[in-house]
Design a protein around this nucleic acid. Structure first.
Lengths: 192, 192
DNA sequence: CCAATTCTGAAACATTTGTTTCAGAATAAC
DNA sequence: GTTATTCTGAAACAAATGTTTCAGAATTGG
């Protein structure tokens, strides 16, 4: 028996996420955030909590979206190796066309050392990325598209981390060719 | 005919660098910085300038140190391939034993998108890293330790970026074995 | 020693920060 | 329609931010 929350929380989190993504945790002010979310700070503190809590929710939301993407890809009817190669190509597209790098990577470098909760969310995200890659690599080996010479666990870890550096490269050099060549090299290394 | 600057500027920059390195640009406050530098803010503004200028000087200093390290390594009497392998191993050591990741990488993700001057310093640093690697790879090819099958430019780019992801991996998982295995894999890929 | 100049320390500055307050608007249950 | 509860908007909060001010200390060259 009372008034209802007026704003759509999911939409508001999405908007806040975009601000944090672009400006980072310390770079985003409460005003920046509430402006984008189109709510008053009292509403924010009443429902979601303080700045840290909001950030946690945003990073969680970001990693949820990635999780959904991986699940969707794994549910595809294509061959594992085709899914993997598609994923790499689309990942390259995200790097080249996106304008704000990866929020998980940025957050890892900015706050994961000091904020345990964020760190845990990012670890979970990283573990899911690893599982996604591991399964595809393992299955591709069984189907003969990837040499069984290497440990699939190592390859999964390796790509999971390689991939991060491509973001840095693109921030500095803005050179799509460079990213594409590195991706091709990686795929070639895998398949031979 | 006037008073001299009391503090040692180089020492002060070094101290400020450590604060920025640990806390990031936005996370470090002017008080944090002047406390570490042991100078008054008026002295800072009189000699070096504002916070941005100080940061520029710190990032510059950081990249200068790296430059010196590369030059020293290139001046060594060892074979190129040995220099390269040593460098990779020591780089792994820095990741595993350091507690604050790489300042150049952190800065790239936090501010390079918005701050053109920082971006330029980091690009120059990246180019030097590239040259260092490129020369070693090229010479190792000529001496037969690295297969000439691949383009040395690609390999240099590739390692330069791969390397960044190892930092992220270590922030999240704090697993030295993981980093070491990836390094070994990279060296193996190179040499075959 | 004097004069000119420059540096330092402490305090103050205006903004911006994250957060709280509270009167009034809105709604659900009765 | 009343009542109880909860949400919203605007304003206010103290603390922290980056920066400036300025009196006095220090140093140099004459």
């Amino acid at each position: 028996m009372a008034r209802n929350v007026e704003f759509n929380e999911e939409v508001a989190i999405q908007k806040a996420m975009e601000v944090f993504w672009k400006k980072g945790y310390n770079g985003a002010s409460l005003r920046d955030l509430t402006d984008a979310m189109q709510i008053n700070s009292s509403s924010l503190y009443n429902t979601i909590g303080d700045k840290q809590e909001l950030f946690v929710r945003c990073v969680q939301h970001y990693t949820d979206l990635r999780k959904q993407d991986w699940e969707k890809r794994l549910g595809s009817k294509k061959a594992p190796f085709a899914i993997l190669v598609d994923y790499i190509h689309e990942a390259v597209g995200v790097i080249i066309n996106g304008e704000d790098s990866c929020m998980a990577v940025k957050s890892a470098f900015e706050v994961a050392t000091n904020d345990q909760r964020i760190k845990e969310i990012l670890i979970a995200d990283n573990d899911r990325a690893y599982q996604f890659l591991y399964n595809l690599i393992k299955n591709s080996m069984e189907q003969g598209q990837i040499s069984t010479e290497e440990d699939p666990a190592l390859l999964a870890d390796y790509f999971n981390s390689t991939w991060t550096g491509w973001y840095e490269s693109y921030i500095l050099h803005k050179d799509p060719i460079k990213i594409k060549r590195m991706a091709e090299y990686f795929i070639k290394q895998l398949s031979k």
